[in-house]
């Protein structure tokens, strides 16, 4: 995927660019708002990682507003030290698709950017999700694996749905908390792990090959082939 990183801090930018390249993406970097806007507007990217406070007269919010004003719908993830709830709301209102505050874990950034970039494509509404022999019907709200019906609680169903929609991608605990529970704070106890392990009991345990994998220091991934 082609990703644009607009970030003025050399260390952070270097770290992010290197990490994204290692993950197999094509990365462009701008260290000020003016260049960032020019590159975002003139080239096609799958996602943009955007700092809020930028030199060059155009800050992240202005940049994004200008971009959206030109009907550019490239997915944008804000990466900012401005961490107040209102800052986050402002960023999302300006047209941002996601908001990650500094300091951040690279795994979190990567997972979110990949999720964003992929969401941009294939918007067709689906009624049925299928990963290997696991099948989830969104209309009848039924789950089957290898033809066998699995009974899930409503929340477990939504958790599985989220994992299947992001099949093959890393999904972090925070993403699950936001996507499945709509909670925007970090519970002190790691409650998500317990919910995932319960889901595993039902979806993976009775079957020979597991689908839900734990990705160390990052989160979870649902995928067909054991890597």
């Amino acid at each position: 995927m082609r990703i644009l990183v607009v970030e003025d801090d050399k260390d952070v930018a270097g770290f992010v660019v290197r990490g994204l390249k290692e993950a197999g993406h094509l990365v462009e970097h701008a260290d000020n708002g003016r260049d960032g806007l020019f590159m975002a507007a003139s080239e096609n990217f799958d996602a943009v990682i955007l700092d809020r406070m930028l030199p060059g007269g155009i800050d992240g919010l202005r940049l994004l507003e200008t971009l959206r004003g030109q009907k550019n719908t490239v997915p944008v993830l804000f990466l900012s030290a401005l961490a107040e709830v209102d800052d986050r709301v402002r960023g999302l209102k300006a047209g941002g698709d996601d908001y990650l505050t500094k300091p951040f874990a690279f795994a979190e950034l990567l997972a979110r950017v990949e999720a964003l970039a992929r969401r941009g494509k294939g918007d067709a509404p689906v009624t049925r999700l299928l990963v290997a022999d696991l099948e989830l019907d969104l209309l009848s709200r039924q789950v089957r694996r290898a033809g066998q019906k699995i009974d899930l609680q409503p929340r477990e169903f939504r958790l599985l749905e989220y994992l299947m929609r992001h099949a093959g991608q890393v999904v972090t605990r925070t993403m699950l908390l936001e996507g499945v529970w709509d909670y925007h704070f970090d519970p002190q106890t790691n409650v998500i792990d317990v919910h995932v392990s319960r889901l595993r009991q039902k979806v993976d345990k009775p079957f020979p090959s597991p689908l839900i994998h734990t990705i160390r220091n990052a989160g979870y991934m649902l995928r067909a082939d054991p890597a």
Binding site: V85, W181, Y183, P187, T189, V191, H195, R198
Partner: peptide, 25 residues
């Protein structure tokens, strides 16, 4: 400053959700 985010809402599902989130742990 968060007072601007005040709205009327139903607390019952909030209680149920939080309860459910922690019930597993």
């Amino acid at each position: 400053s968060r007072r601007s985010a005040f709205t009327a809402f139903d607390l019952a599902p909030v209680l149920a959700d939080v309860g459910e989130l922690y019930a597993a742990v």
